[in-house]
Design a protein around this nucleic acid. Structure first.
Lengths: 346, 346
DNA sequence: CTGAAAGCGCTTACAG
DNA sequence: CTGAAAGCGCTTACAG
């Protein structure tokens, strides 16, 4: 009795190829894997037969003998609600795939609520040998997943800054440089009161961006930097903007850590009768279609997310192959200037 | 030599459990799988040991002997660009997972450009026995993937209306009823000139929705229904809206097939000096956070996408088990009234 | 109720 | 250059 209840089709195996070619299955395996040990003629014959009968290796069999799962895992730890509007993951996944599919490696996706669940999923996935390695996103400054990855010796790539203590390679973008470029741009326009609405404080890149912001503001001699922490949501974007705009010395420019909050700010400004960009300039931290969908269209930092995915997959595959890839930096975000930024009111 | 280059940890196997318990590996397998053939006492002992050493079955070994991959596939066939803003897939995937993870079934995700690539990916995935079945989304009226699924006898579930010719089960929502409810609502407000900006004509649900729209409009005696076909994008949403609003007898209400185009319409209306909702009511076809992020907030049809995912996974797993689940309908969308709809101008 | 054995479809030393 | 065989970690009839 085979597989599914609908009377599964019998797959061709190397035994069948061996029988047709009149050689041993060992010879077939060598030929198909491009290894020495078979004559060019025999190899040709075997490849032709395999091609003709549409043979493909069974991953299960390859995994069992080769101790490779030929898949990698991506466990996204976020409440399901906040995933919808985030264009990041679909683009990132498309990038991962572009690299993985060429290497005949599958992508196993899991979506969980928090780090505790993510760790459990990691352990299970690894214990069952479903994957050869994992992609770790949304890194926290203190990240409970990392010690687990190290304890289990799971090959993994960190999507974020390298961690000196660990042996895990990282693929990262220069968040600090991007933030500085945005501050410089606003200062060049003449802004002196620039605030920042930051994302989740637990996330490492939030911390990096905030630090870069503070340094840039201080470097320009603009006084004590003003930063509001949020959880990236629409609601907190509204609240933070309201708070900033209610002060007497309200900022003339605000940088937001994503596009959703920047859009929220647009609405708050309108409600409060603050004109954008004339009285308030807005910069969104992540460029997305959303930024061109609202009015005024938002000036934003644009990252090449798909390339990020491609490099991440590449580093992970090298890591799995035991080639100790080392960390890699990918392109810094570029500032896309649209209609939400201009010189401050005089 | 084992797995990864970093000196893989030796996984525990049933042989180890058997040795510790002093029984055969067969007995261990029976005990772990809850089958008869071992005494309650032995079973207890075996389970305890397995638990203690953290044993988990190797999927590769289980697949090879049991002829089940313990994974299902989702191949998304869309240009990567259009994926970002779509909140559908992340929600849908979260729903799939909720059901799959409880059944110890993995989700293999692929993102490809078109149906040709999707078919190739399906064939490969199946030939390698990476999956036990597949989820098919974004069904076309004439869908080249279906004959391939049938030819290969791949267990699959259609995310869309049942197809009489095929033996494939479907999980669907009543798109027609949802569209009719929206038309009824607009008519009740007093609208007589209602237009529809539809999505990709090749998609089956576009056709179903357009047909329902036409019927509803004719049923209300509102004259020849006006429908503009688009590809779901922002750009075509703008173009379609511009065309509709440029006519002398322009509509007083427009229904859009998604949220992105409805947002585009908001901008076009503003540019053309048409006030929303006073001069133009707008209904978005898919509810999402975007609908509450714009001003005025958009009245929209809200689908329980996560539940859709849960049911889809459930049906697919039944299909894989050979239980011929039959098609299943899930809840119809509800109209969420916000600020973009009101009575037409007198 | 239990043990010994074959088999799933590959890979890979090891002899010839 | 090639063949015969063991092994990956399970499941599952088949004897006892």
């Amino acid at each position: 009795m085979l597989g599914n209840g609908r009377g599964a089709v019998k797959r061709p195996t190397i035994a069948e190829i061996a029988a047709r070619a009149g050689v041993s299955i060992g010879a077939v395996s060598y030929a198909l894997n491009g290894r020495p040990g078979v004559s060019a003629e025999t190899r040709r014959l075997i490849l032709d037969i395999a091609d003709e009968i549409g043979w493909r290796p069974s991953v299960a069999a390859r995994s069992l003998s080769g101790s490779r799962a030929h898949s990698v895992g991506l466990i996204i730890a976020r409440p399901a609600d906040t995933l919808g509007v985030e264009p990041f993951f679909m683009r990132f996944i498309a990038g991962l795939e572009r690299e993985l599919s060429g290497r005949r490696t599958g992508l196993l996706l899991q979506v969980v609520e928090d780090h505790r669940a993510a760790i459990e999923a990691m352990r299970l996935c690894w214990a069952e040998r479903r994957v050869d390695g994992m992609v770790v996103t949304d890194l926290w400054t203190q990240d409970a997943r990392i010690p687990v990855l190290e304890e289990l010796k799971i090959p993994a790539v960190l999507v974020g800054r390298p961690r000196p203590g660990t042996g895990l390679p990282a693929v990262w973008t220069d968040d600090a440089a991007a933030v500085v470029s945005a501050v410089d741009y606003l200062v060049a326009l003449g802004h002196r009161r620039i605030a920042r609405v930051a994302g989740l404080p637990a996330l490492e890149h939030t911390r990096v961006r905030v630090a870069a912001f503070r340094e840039a503001v201080l470097g320009h001699g603009l006084g004590e930097p003003r930063v509001v922490q949020t959880d990236y949501t629409w609601e907190e974007g509204m609240r933070a903007t309201r708070a900033l705009l209610s002060r007497r010395d309200r900022p003339t420019a605000i940088m937001f850590d994503n596009d959703v909050m920047a859009t929220a700010a647009l609405n708050v400004a309108q409600e409060m009768g603050v004109s954008v960009p004339d009285e308030l300039s807005i910069v969104a931290g992540d460029d997305s279609q959303l930024c061109v969908m609202v009015r005024p269209a938002l000036t934003a930092l644009a990252w090449d997310i798909q390339a990020y995915g491609v490099h991440t997959a590449r580093v992970l595959l090298e890591e799995i192959d035991g080639r100790s890839p080392g960390s890699r930096q990918v392109g810094t975000a570029g500032l896309v200037v649209r209609s939400s930024t201009t010189a401050p009111p005089v």
